[in-house]
């Protein structure tokens, strides 16, 4: 994407977000008492101001974007295989979702060990043995610090529990 495409997409996106906020999200998801005498003190006033400003900034981005040259070079560094990159990103999103789900079920230490190893292999580490050793040691050391020094109740999960 070049500068112009980025600017236009951002501008249109900002205007859509502003419209969504002002016509749907704020009326439905921000509660306000009915007996407010002054509109500027309403809990909805500030989100409306921000929504309006977001729309204006979006409009500004579109106006300036239209004046930019469409033939500028892409801004982001290209990678060898964008399709593989996109697949890795999807795998990362899944890894995060699974990590979040597993934290309370199998505990933070075991989840962290698995997510460490999974991420190391996802980024195709050239040091698999080191990665596996670190995947075991780093979560254990952090558990020791947070649970026994900082006194944080690290989630232990329903299966194997650590001292």
């Amino acid at each position: 994407m070049n500068q112009r495409a980025i600017q236009m997409q951002l501008g249109i996106g900002a205007m859509l977000v502003a419209a969504f906020l002002m016509f749907y999200a704020i009326p439905n998801w921000v509660s306000s008492p009915t007996n407010i005498r002054n509109v500027v003190l309403s809990p909805r006033f500030w989100p409306y101001v921000l929504g309006g400003l977001t729309g204006l900034v979006g409009l500004g981005l579109v106006v300036f974007g239209r004046r930019m040259s469409a033939s500028e070079a892409p801004l982001n560094e290209a990678i060898d295989d964008p399709r593989a990159g996109a697949l890795r990103l999807m795998a990362m999103a899944v890894l995060m979702a699974v990590t979040f789900w597993a934290l309370s079920r199998i505990g933070m230490v075991w989840t962290s060990m698995l997510s460490f190893a999974a991420l190391a292999f996802l980024v195709r580490t050239r040091h698999p043995v080191t990665a596996l050793v670190c995947a075991v040691l780093v979560p254990l050391l952090l558990y020791a610090f947070f649970a026994h020094v900082a006194g944080v109740a690290i989630p232990q999960g329903e299966f194997v529990r650590l001292p």
Partner: peptide
């Protein structure tokens, strides 16, 4: 190696 460092950062962030 950055590809060992980043998983470490992920675990550090989680804790």
């Amino acid at each position: 190696p950055k590809r060992i460092l980043m998983p470490t950062v992920l675990v550090l962030c989680t804790y």
